Amino acid sequence: NQASVVANQLIPISTHLTLVMMRSEVVTPVGIPAEDIPRLVSMQVNRAVPLGTTLMPDMVKGYA
Protein backbone atom coordinates (compact mmCIF):
# COMPACT_ATOMS: atom_id res chain seq x y z
CA ASN A 1 0.00 0.00 0.00
CA GLN A 2 1.31 3.38 -1.02
CA ALA A 3 1.25 6.30 1.41
CA SER A 4 -0.42 9.52 0.27
CA VAL A 5 -0.07 13.12 1.40
CA VAL A 6 -2.70 14.11 3.99
CA ALA A 7 -3.37 17.57 5.48
CA ASN A 8 -2.04 17.80 9.05
CA GLN A 9 -4.17 20.91 9.69
CA LEU A 10 -6.71 23.11 7.91
CA ILE A 11 -4.85 24.60 4.93
CA PRO A 12 -6.57 27.83 3.77
CA ILE A 13 -6.97 28.54 0.05
CA SER A 14 -3.82 29.96 -1.65
CA THR A 15 -1.57 28.90 1.25
CA HIS A 16 2.02 27.94 0.37
CA LEU A 17 2.56 24.42 1.68
CA THR A 18 5.16 23.68 4.37
CA LEU A 19 6.34 20.35 5.81
CA VAL A 20 4.38 21.00 9.02
CA MET A 21 1.09 21.05 7.07
CA MET A 22 1.50 17.57 5.57
CA ARG A 23 1.87 13.99 6.75
CA SER A 24 1.95 10.65 4.97
CA GLU A 25 -0.75 8.07 5.51
CA VAL A 26 -2.09 5.02 3.68
CA VAL A 27 -5.57 6.12 2.60
CA THR A 28 -8.26 5.33 0.05
CA PRO A 29 -8.56 6.82 -2.47
CA VAL A 30 -4.83 7.26 -3.09
CA GLY A 31 -3.79 10.89 -3.52
CA ILE A 32 -0.44 12.56 -4.20
CA PRO A 33 2.32 10.03 -3.30
CA ALA A 34 4.08 10.74 0.01
CA GLU A 35 7.49 10.74 -1.69
CA ASP A 36 6.42 13.98 -3.45
CA ILE A 37 6.19 15.90 -0.14
CA PRO A 38 9.56 17.67 -0.72
CA ARG A 39 8.33 18.77 -4.17
CA LEU A 40 5.09 20.16 -2.69
CA VAL A 41 6.84 22.53 -0.26
CA SER A 42 6.05 26.15 -1.22
CA MET A 43 3.46 25.13 -3.84
CA GLN A 44 0.01 26.69 -3.30
CA VAL A 45 -3.31 24.96 -2.71
CA ASN A 46 -6.13 26.19 -4.93
CA ARG A 47 -8.88 25.46 -2.37
CA ALA A 48 -9.25 25.13 1.39
CA VAL A 49 -8.08 21.68 2.51
CA PRO A 50 -9.64 20.45 5.79
CA LEU A 51 -7.61 18.56 8.41
CA GLY A 52 -7.25 14.89 7.47
CA THR A 53 -8.05 15.43 3.79
CA THR A 54 -5.97 13.56 1.21
CA LEU A 55 -4.23 15.97 -1.17
CA MET A 56 -5.16 15.24 -4.77
CA PRO A 57 -3.14 16.50 -7.77
CA ASP A 58 -5.88 19.00 -8.77
CA MET A 59 -5.73 20.69 -5.32
CA VAL A 60 -2.15 21.96 -5.74
CA LYS A 61 -1.30 24.69 -8.27
CA GLY A 62 1.41 23.55 -10.67
CA TYR A 63 1.53 19.94 -9.43
CA ALA A 64 -0.45 18.07 -12.08
Rank of each mutant, 00 (worst) to 15 (best):
Glu35Ser: 11
Pro57Tyr: 06
Val49Ser: 02
Asn1Tyr: 15
Val60Ser: 02
Met22Thr: 00
Val45Arg: 00
Arg47Asp: 07
Val26Ala: 09
Leu17Gly: 01
Ala34Asn: 06
Val30Ile: 14
Ile37Thr: 08
Met22Ile: 08
Asp58Val: 10
Ile13Arg: 12
Gln44Met: 13
Thr28Trp: 07
Val41Lys: 04
Leu40Met: 06
Val26Pro: 08
Pro38Tyr: 13
Thr28Glu: 15
Ser14Gln: 12
Glu25Thr: 06
Leu10Cys: 15
Val27Leu: 04
Val49Ala: 04
Gln44Pro: 06
Met22Lys: 00
Val45Leu: 09
Pro57Asn: 05
Leu10Ile: 11
Met56Ser: 06
Met43Cys: 10
Ile32Cys: 05
Tyr63Leu: 06
Thr18Gly: 04
Ser42His: 12
Arg39Trp: 09
Gln44His: 12
Ser4Gln: 01
Asp36Thr: 07
Ser4Thr: 04
Ser4Trp: 02
Val26Lys: 06
Val27Asp: 02
Val30Ser: 13
Gly31Tyr: 02
Ala3Trp: 07
Gln2Ile: 12
Ala34Tyr: 08
Leu51Arg: 11
Leu55His: 01
Ile13Ala: 14
Leu51Gly: 11
His16Leu: 13
Leu40Tyr: 01
Val45Glu: 02
Tyr63Pro: 04
Met56Ala: 07
Val20Arg: 12
Leu19Gly: 06
Ile37Gln: 05
Thr15Met: 09
Met21Phe: 03
Pro33Lys: 08
Asn1Asp: 15
Ala7Gly: 02
Pro29Glu: 07
Val20His: 15
His16Ile: 14
Ile32Arg: 00
Glu35Trp: 09
Leu17Thr: 00
Leu17Val: 01
Leu17Met: 06
Val49Thr: 04
Val41His: 02
Val20Ile: 12
Val30Arg: 05
Tyr63His: 04
Glu35Ile: 09
Val49Asn: 02
Gln9Met: 14
Ser14Arg: 11
Val49Gly: 00
Val26Trp: 07
Val49Gln: 02
Arg39Thr: 15
Val5Ile: 12
Gly31Phe: 02
Asn1Trp: 13
His16Gln: 12
Ser14Cys: 09
Met21Cys: 04
Thr54Glu: 02
Leu40Pro: 00
Lys61Pro: 11
Ser42Trp: 11
Ser24Gly: 15
Met43Asn: 04
Val20Ser: 13
Thr53Met: 09
Asp58Ala: 09
Gln44Phe: 06
Ala7Ile: 04
Val5Leu: 03
Pro50Ile: 05
Gln9Leu: 13
Arg23Glu: 04
Val49Cys: 07
Val26Gly: 05
Ala48Leu: 14
Ile37Ala: 07
Met56Phe: 10
His16Pro: 14
Tyr63Ile: 04
Pro33Met: 07
Gly62Gln: 07
Lys61Gln: 15
Leu19Met: 14
Val27Ala: 08
Val49Lys: 02
Gly62Phe: 07
Asp36Ser: 10
Arg39Asp: 06
Thr15Ser: 11
Thr53Asn: 10
Gln9Ala: 11
Thr53His: 13
Pro29Leu: 05
Ala64Ser: 13
Val26Ser: 10
Gly31Val: 03
Thr18Tyr: 03
Gly52Arg: 04
Thr54Cys: 04
Thr53Glu: 14
Pro33His: 09
Ser42Asn: 15
Ile32His: 02
Arg23Asp: 05
Met56Cys: 14
Asn46Gly: 06
Arg23Ile: 08
Ala34Glu: 10
His16Ser: 14
Ala3Gln: 12
Thr15Gly: 06
Pro38Trp: 10
Met59Tyr: 13
Thr54Gln: 03
Ala7Ser: 12
Val60Leu: 07
Val60Phe: 05
Gly52Tyr: 05
Leu19Trp: 13
Gly31Arg: 02
Ile11Arg: 00
Met21Tyr: 05
Leu10Glu: 15
Ala3Glu: 13
Leu10Met: 13
Gln9Ser: 12
Arg23Val: 07
Pro29Asp: 09
Leu17Gln: 00
Ala34His: 06
Gly52Gln: 02
Ser42Gly: 15
Val41Thr: 05
Val6Thr: 06
